[in-house]
Amino acid sequence: MPYRRLPNTDSSRLKALKTAYRKGKDLPPVKLAFSQSTSQRVQLFINSFDMAMDRYKKVYEIQVKYNKDYTSVTKKARLYLSHFIQVLNMAIQRGDHKVAIRAFYGLEDYNNRLPSLTTDRELVEWGIKIITGETQRTSKGMAPIMNPSIAMVKVWFENFEEAYKQQKVFQQNTARAQAELDGLRNTADDIILNIWNEVEATFKDLSDDTRREKAKDYGVVYIFRKNEIQGLSLLHRSMQGML
């Protein structure tokens, strides 16, 4: 026997609710295969679920849209910052600057190695350290690091910081919309389960095939198992051979 499969995506949940909603609007209560109390639950709930889905879709699309620009700016800031540190290390190796200047940047434990700039948090941390350190060092009359200059590093780092803060807002908006949708999902599942149970109970005295056909008209989904599909295929071919 085929089994009933409840919706497992938000779009399929909304489709099931809309099917029930239309039935509740189109049919008088005496002809409706589920109760008036369930019909009222659908009417009161469906708009909330639909709007929550729409809100999540919109804020997620905004996040994705700006993520490409954010990724590009982040890559550029990381490149300038790492190049600045490399140039600084080469200047020390050539003897143009003393090893002690690494303390201005918090790099005294790194020798000629680059600190990790892999994560956005690390990029924020080291961007602040490097810009602050170079500003303090040059304010004491020491020659600035060039190619790239700290001014160029600062431009791209500030672009990154702005994009980083904006992306965090987008992520928070998406998380809130997702949480709202998650909170409604259990209610949607409960309403759909009630609808389908009541529909099947209404048609319980009909033959299996007729009951399923009528229930399908209310959005109930039935899935045939693999062996049942094979059996139906064999039966169909056998019937064709008899014709």
Rank of each mutant, 00 (worst) to 15 (best):
R5M: 05
N8I: 10
N8F: 15
T9Y: 13
S12M: 02
R13E: 14
L17D: 00
Y21E: 01
Q36F: 11
S39P: 03
Q40R: 08
F45A: 01
I46W: 01
N47R: 10
S48Q: 01
D50E: 13
K57P: 05
V64H: 03
K65Q: 03
K65P: 08
N67P: 01
D69S: 12
Y70P: 01
S72N: 10
S72V: 00
V73I: 06
A77Y: 07
L79R: 01
V87S: 04
M90D: 15
G95T: 07
D96C: 06
R102G: 05
R102N: 13
A103M: 01
Y110W: 01
L114W: 14
L114K: 09
D120N: 11
R121L: 05
L123Q: 10
V124R: 14
I128P: 13
K129V: 13
I130R: 08
I131C: 09
T132Q: 14
Q136L: 10
R137G: 07
T138A: 04
G141K: 04
G141W: 11
G141E: 14
G141F: 13
A143S: 05
I150T: 03
A151F: 06
V153R: 00
K154C: 05
F157Y: 15
F157V: 00
E158W: 10
F160G: 11
E161I: 00
Y164M: 03
K165R: 04
V169S: 14
V169H: 07
Q171F: 02
A179G: 12
E180W: 02
L181N: 06
L181A: 05
L184H: 11
R185E: 13
R185K: 14
R185N: 12
N186E: 15
T187Q: 15
I191E: 07
V199Y: 05
A201E: 09
T202V: 01
K204V: 03
L206V: 00
R212N: 03
E213T: 09
E213K: 09
K214E: 15
A215N: 05
G219T: 10
G219R: 02
V220A: 01
Y222S: 00
Y222E: 08
F224C: 12
R225H: 14
L232C: 13
L232R: 11
H236I: 06
H236A: 15
R237H: 14
G241N: 12
